[in-house]
Each structure stands twice: as structure tokens, then as C-alpha cells.
Amino acid sequence: MELPIVITASTLASILAAYIVLRCRCALVPDVHKPNKPLIPKLGGLVVLAYVVVSFTLLSIGKELINSMYYVIFYTTPIVLGIIGIIDDFTHVHEFLRVGASVLYPLIILLAMGDKLGYLNFPIIGHFSNPVVVIILTIAAYGIFSNAINMMDVVNGIVPYSMILTSIIPLAYSIMINNTTLLQMTLALLIPSIILFAFNKYPAKLFNGNGGTYSIGALVAGLMLYSGLGTLILLVMVPYVINGLLIIVSSRGIKSREKLKPSTYMNNFIIYPNLNKGSTLTLMKIIVIDEPGDERKVIRSFYTVFNVATALTILLFIVLYVMGWV
């Protein structure tokens, strides 16, 4: 099927999903950083799911996915993880089940592919064609990123904003080398992120929820593995990797958000670092440790951190492209 038709239909489905979620006002949670603690629906995952499901269906009708099973993993893993996340938004899903699903589902698909595994290309490092290495990298990417995105979803707008920044290099590269498959994959991350950002930016009208963060995490993991730009995408996402590392090490293991000792506290709607012994170390705590501030100030600081990581990576991309290394 023609790319503009797929993109238009998927975008409309995504916008419709956002409209329905905002109208139904279901799965409401308080926005704790705002003075009157308004109730906000946390079903942003449906916005991502709508885009991915419609794209995958239309591309399957066009039989354009049959050539590579990697695209089946790319499109179906966000659907599976997004559904688990939405279930988690209503009833608690144990953290080991969530992490297990993010690792096991792509593993099962890869094993089902048998000897049809291709290779993964990473700029600077090279390409991997050994099946065991491909499987290890795949489960590591999906396991880490679906959860790392979820850990960063602490204030309005930063997840969709950072995903828009993450899409810049693959979008530019897909246009430069005229690669429609990469363009489709990049737009599957970029367009739902733009729609989510419109509603999730400060002051949020819609939360991403676990459904949104898991499905976005799976999309970015897929893009990292199959775009041929993995190292550059990982470098843009350094703040996520730092935040995930700090949380896991300081809390001694993978724990649900409710079980973590708070890294910050709020007094008169100013966010302060929690300096008590044993409190979780996060990027947000490091941001407010210099100077406590309100949510808007913290969001601006997060944007600055992502802008710097993206700017450094774009410079590196230009150097690598000029030297013919990507």
C-alpha cells in the first residue's frame, strides 16, 4: 500500500484514539505536581497502539512485511507490550511479568524465525550476523528500553518530547538515503509522539500511562536495532540509560514505582531532593539538587538535558556521514 495512505490512516486513527480517551475521561489519576491536583486520563498508550495497529494492518495487506520478519517484531512488540501496559494501568501487573514479557515476546518471534535471521548494523561498531548475538542484543534492547522509558515518565511531556528528538536522526537519514521502510519505522515513533506531546506537555491533559511508555519503549528499541543507526539512537537516549541505571543500582534491583523510596518530595509545589539515606537516586533528583523548583522549571531542565544529548549526537552523525561511516 502507498506510504501516504498508510501514514494518513494511522495518524487519523491515533488522533481519534486521543479524542476518545479525552472524551471518555476513564482511568483518571491525579496530577500530583499541580496545585489543585486535577484528574487526568492515563490511557495515552491507546494513541500509540492505534497508530501501530493501523500501520501494521495496512502494511500486512500490502504484503510489504513478508520480506523480513524483523518488521513483524518491530510492529507487534509495541502492540503486545502496550496491551500489557494498559492492563497494568487498570490492575497491577507484577514487575517481573512486565519485564519478562518485554524480553520473552521478541525472543519467541526470533526463535520462530529459525535460520531467517539477518544482521544488525551499528555505526562505529560494525554489523552482527551471529544468531546468538542477534538474539542477545534483541532481548537486551527490548528489555532495557521498554522499562527505561517507563522510569523517566515522572513529569509532563518529557517522554514524547525526547522521542521527537530521538526521531530526528533516523528521519533525516531515511530521507537522505531514500529508504521508505526506515521512514515508515521512524514515523511510527515520531507521529504518535507528536500527538502525545500535544496533550501531555505542561499542563498535561493526557498521561502516557504504562501502556504508552511500554509501547514507545518497544518502538524505540526496534528502531535502535533495525534502523542501522543503533549506536546513535543509544547516544541520544543517554539520559534514559543514566536514569534507569541510577534507579536500579540505588534501589538494588527492579522494583515497581510504588515500592521505590521517593527520590524527591514536594513542599508548596516546589520539588526538593529527598536527601534521606536510602532514597532512590534519579535524574530528577540530580536536577533539583542544584536548585529546587516547580514542575515547569524541572521540565525545562529535562528538555535542556535531552537537547544537549541530541545536539552532540547530531554533530557525531554529521561527522560519521561525511566520513562515510553510516
Binding site: 543517554v238 539520559p239 535524574l283
Partner: peptide
């Protein structure tokens, strides 16, 4: 406000 986080990143 963001100096330490920027340095770490």
C-alpha cells in the same frame, strides 16, 4: 538548576 545533570549527561 540543570548544571549537575548536564555535566553527568
Amino acid at each position: 538548576m540543570v548544571r549537575t545533570a548536564l555535566y553527568l549527561t
